[in-house]
């Protein structure tokens, strides 16, 4: 009986090693395999570590747009997506990819939308130049208007009209005083 029990226990132990536990994969956390090399070619820089890796990761994260936020950088966003993107950028820099390669990697999947500052080319120039143009035109209009306005002094016609109006009263006062 005890022998059967021991065999059953051994079988159970063996099964627990083979059959995956609910909610977990047999190998623990499964590792995703995505090949950045197939997108941006082999790493063209040196593998970064330590403080330099932290600094460059933050610099990159600050110029990347968080895809699930409103006008927030990946560095400023606490969302899971932004954290994952920051981690991915860090992994790529640590693997020796240059900053340009890392940005290209994200741009390949998300498009130029991922860049907080649009590239200075083509139609994008409108975004860079329009505010300057509006400022120049607006400033020009203000200056023109200020130059066109004279200091507030009554015109000759106005003073004559006022004089005529006052003359009547002045005459009346003179008559009353003289008696």
């Amino acid at each position: 009986m005890s022998c059967r029990f021991a065999v059953a226990l051994a079988l159970l132990l063996l099964l627990s090693l083979v059959v995956p536990t609910s909610g977990q994969t047999p190998s623990g956390a499964p590792q995703a395999i995505v090949s950045p090399e197939s997108v941006v070619g082999p790493p063209q820089g040196r593998a970064l570590t330590g403080e330099e890796l932290d600094r460059r990761t933050e610099a990159l994260a600050s110029i990347m747009r968080c895809p699930v936020c409103q006008a927030l950088s990946v560095a400023d966003s606490p969302t899971t997506s932004a954290l994952a993107m920051r981690e991915e950028a860090r992994d790529l820099l640590a693997a020796g990819y240059t900053e340009a390669q890392v940005l290209q990697y994200f741009e390949t999947s998300y498009g130029e939308f991922i860049l907080l500052a649009p590239k200075k080319k083509g139609f994008n120039w409108l975004v860079w130049l329009a505010p300057l143009l509006v400022l120049l035109v607006g400033g020009g209009l203000v200056v023109k208007r200020m130059k066109g306005e004279r200091p507030s002094s009554p015109s000759e016609d106005d003073s004559e009209a006022v004089d005529d109006e006052l003359a009547e009263y002045a005459e009346q006062v003179r008559r009353e005083v003289s008696g």
Partner: peptide, 9 residues
């Protein structure tokens, strides 16, 4: 996809 790597790709 634990690190959202495929999601990002």
């Amino acid at each position: 996809d634990p690190d959202v790597k495929v999601g990002i790709a």
